[in-house]
Design a protein around this nucleic acid. Structure first.
Length: 509
RNA sequence: GGUCGGGUGGCCGAGUGGCUAGGCAGAGCUCUGCAAAAGCUCCUACAGCGGUUCGAAUCCGCUCUCGACCUCCA
C-alpha cells in the first residue's frame, strides 16, 4: 500500500511541470542516479546532485517507501575532447600516472566514497560498476541490433536514430529537434571520432572499436572494444530496477545527449520508457562562472574541506557545504563563492548549535494563566512544524524553506527560554521528535552530536577544567593580565574560551 | 544560430496576483574587566519598457543580460 502522508510533488523534466509523485509499484520505489566517472578526485560538481538525491531518497523512505537507490560508478572511461581526441579519459590518466586503469579507478572510487560520507550522504542501495556489467551491455546491444535499431560498422555499433524515430518520438526529454541538431550553426566544432562509420551523423555509439592505444578493452561479438557512453546506465538501470522504474536523476548537463539517448535505447530495447520521472539538478557555478578545468576555477572537495584553494580564504566543514547546497532549491543554479560559503558556514553554526540546544532543552512546567504555544499557532507546536516542514518538502524538495523553519524555531525558542511563551512537556517531546526527523533523518544534519569536545578525551576534559579553574582564580582577583594570557595562549593552541554569566566555556576551532 | 533555464535588497537565496521568507554583512542596543559568544531592534528589494488587472516581483509582450546544453565530456 502506498503510504499517504500528503502529496509529494516533483518536477518532471519530461513534462516540465511539477507532478504528484505516484509510485509505480508501491511501497517500492526505484531510483537511478547517474554516478561519477572516477577518473579524478571528487569535486564540487559531485556534491550537489548526490546531496540532492540523498535527501530525496531519505524523504521517500520517511514517507514509508522502500527505496532502491542505484547509483553507478563509471569506470570504463569515455573519450576526452579537446586535444586528447580519441583517447580514453581513464586510460590517459592511468598512463600519466603509470598505474593500471583499475588501480586509478579504485583510488578515485575510494576518494569519492569518502567525500560522500563526509558530506553526510548515505550510500546508495546498489552501486554498480560499468566495468562489471559489460555482458549486460553487450546483451542489450545485441537486442537492439536484432530489433533493427542498431547496426555494426567496422567493429563499432551505432544506434540507428532514423529507425528509432520511425517508431518512437525522440527529443521530448531535452526538447531537441533532430533535424536542427546537425544542421545547427556553431556545431562544426568537433570532428567526432568514427563519424564516417555512421550512417547518419546523429547516430550515437553503443559499442566502440578500441584503438591500439586504448587500454581499457573487452571482448565482444564485434571485436575488442568498449561500451558507448550511454549504454551502461540503460543496462544497469534495467537490470536492478526493471523498466520502467520510478525516478531517474542526474545533473542538467546530462539531459542531452546522455539521458535522451538512454531513453531511446531502453525504449527501443524494452518497448517501454526507462522511468516515470526524470529529475535534473541545476549546475554549480564558481563566482558566477561555469566550473571548468580550463577556466582555472575547478574546486575539488578536498580543497574545500581543507581550505587549500586560491579562491578560498578558509576551510569549510563538509556539513556546512551540505547546508550551503540545501539552502538553495536543487533546480536553481548555485553559485559558490568564498563570501557566500563563509556566510553560510556562519549561519550553519548558529543553526545547528541552536537546534542542538533546543532538542536538549527541558521546558519548565507551564505557568498558570499562560497559554501554551501549542495552542497559539506557534511553530513550536509539533503539528504545525510538521505541516510546514512537510509542505516545503512536498513542493519539489524545497529544502531552503525547511532550513528557514529551523531559524524560526530558534527565534521562538528564545521566547520559551525567557518565559514569554510556554510549552507543554508533551508537545515539546513531540516537537523534538519531529525536528530530529526532518533535520536529521531527512536533511542529514546530526543534532545529537553536540559537545564534540566532550567526547574527545577525559584527559583533555580534566586538563581544561584545571586550566579554566586557575584562570577563574585570576579573574576573581582581577588579575586580568593573567587571565587574558591564558585565554590567548589557549586560543593560539586552537581552543576558544568564552566567558559568560555561568562561567567559562571552551571549544575547539 | 538553436533548445532550455535564470535575472529578487551590499551578498547568498525562498516566494507565482493582494498578507514581513530566511541567512550573511551593516547600524544601534543589552550583557560585559576586556574579548568572544548570545540576544533584542533597525535595514522592505524584485533587470528595463509597455500591457492585462481594483491590485503584479508574481500573468502577457518586447528589450537588455547571465548561464547550461547542442552527439560519443560526466
Amino acid at each position: 500500500m502506498a503510504p499517504d502522508k500528503g502529496a509529494l510533488h516533483l518536477y518532471n523534466t519530461l513534462s516540465r511541470t511539477k507532478e504528484p509523485f505516484v509510485a509505480l509499484n508501491a511501497p517500492h520505489v526505484g531510483m537511478y542516479v547517474c554516478g561519477p566517472t572516477v577518473y579524478g578526485p571528487p569535486h564540487l560538481g559531485h556534491a550537489r546532485p548526490y546531496v540532492t538525491f540523498d535527501v530525496l531518497s531519505r524523504y521517500l523512505r520517511h514517507l514509508g517507501y522502500q527505496v532502491r537507490y542505484v547509483r553507478n560508478i563509471t569506470d570504463v572511461g569515455h573519450l576526452v575532447d579537446d586535444a586528447d581526441e580519441g583517447e580514453d579519459k581513464i586510460a590517459r590518466r592511468a598512463r600519466l600516472e603509470k598505474l593500471e586503469p583499475m588501480e586509478l579507478v579504485q583510488r578515485y572510487t575510494l576518494a569519492f566514497h569518502k567525500a560522500m560520507d563526509l558530506l553526510g550522504n548515505q550510500p546508495p542501495s546498489i552501486e554498480p560498476r560499468a566495468s562489471g556489467h559489460i555482458p549486460e551491455q553487450i546483451e542489450m546491444i545485441e537486442v537492439l541490433i536484432r530489433k533493427g535499431f542498431a547496426y555494426e560498422s567496422n567493429g563499432s555499433v551505432y544506434f540507428d536514430l532514423e529507425a528509432y524515430r520511425a517508431k518512437y518520438p525522440y527529443g521530448d526529454l531535452s526538447g531537441r529537434v533532430v533535424d536542427e541538431l546537425v544542421a545547427g550553426a556553431g556545431n562544426e566544432r568537433r570532428a567526432l571520432a568514427g563519424q564516417s562509420e555512421k550512417r547518419k551523423p546523429e547516430d550515437f555509439a553503443l559499442w566502440k572499436n578500441a584503438e591500439p592505444q586504448h587500454i581499457m578493452r573487452w571482448n565482444s561479438p564485434w571485436g575488442l572494444g568498449f561500451p558507448g557512453w550511454h549504454i551502461e546506465c540503460s543496462a544497469m538501470g534495467v537490470k536492478y530496477l526493471d523498466a520502467p522504474f520510478d525516478i531517474h536523476g542526474g545533473g542538467m548537463d546530462l539531459l542531452f545527449p546522455h539521458h535522451e539517448s538512454e531513453m531511446a535505447q531502453t525504449t527501443a530495447c524494452h518497448d517501454c520508457a526507462p522511468c516515470r520521472y526524470w529529475m535534473h539538478n541545476n549546475m554549480v557555478t564558481i563566482n558566477g562562472q561555469k566550473m571548468g578545468k580550463s577556466l582555472g576555477n575547478f574546486i575539488n572537495l578536498d580543497d574545500l574541506f581543507e581550505g587549500t584553494h586560491p579562491l578560498l580564504s578558509q576551510a569549510y566543514d563538509p556539513m556546512s557545504i551540505r547546508f550551503f547546497i540545501l539552502q538553495a532549491q536543487y533546480r536553481s543554479t548555485l553559485d559558490f563563492s568564498d563570501g557566500a560559503l563563509a556566510a553560510s558556514a556562519k549561519g550553519y553554526k548558529r543553526w545547528i548549535q541552536g537546534l542542538q540546544e533546543l532538542i536538549a532543552y527541558k521546558p519548565a512546567p507551564s505557568m498558570a494563566g499562560q497559554e501554551p504555544a501549542v495552542n497559539s499557532g506557534s511553530i513550536l507546536s509539533a503539528p504545525i512544524f510538521e505541516a510546514k516542514a512537510q509542505a516545503a518538502l512536498n513542493d519539489d524538495l524545497n529544502t531552503p524553506i525547511l532550513i528557514a523553519l529551523g531559524y524560526e524555531l530558534l527565534n521562538e525558542f528564545q521566547s520559551v527560554k525567557s518565559g514569554k511563551i510556554t510549552v507543554t512537556a508533551a508537545n515539546w517531546t513531540d516537537l523534538v521528535g519531529k525536528i530530529k526527523v526532518y533535520m536529521t533523518d531527512i536533511l542529514g544534519f546530526n543534532l545529537s552530536d553536540s559537545g564534540k569536545e566532550a567526547s574527545l578525551s577525559p584527559a583533555l576534559e580534566g586538563a581544561m577544567k584545571l586550566i579554566l579553574d586557575l584562570r577563574q582564580q585570576a579573574k576573581d582577583s582581577k588579575n586580568w593580565a593573567q587571565s587574558d594570557l591564558i585565554r590567548n595562549a589557549l586560543n593560539e593552541a586552537g581552543i576558544k574560551v568564552m566567558d559568560d554569566k555561568e562561567g567559562s566555556r571552551w571549544s575547539l576551532g
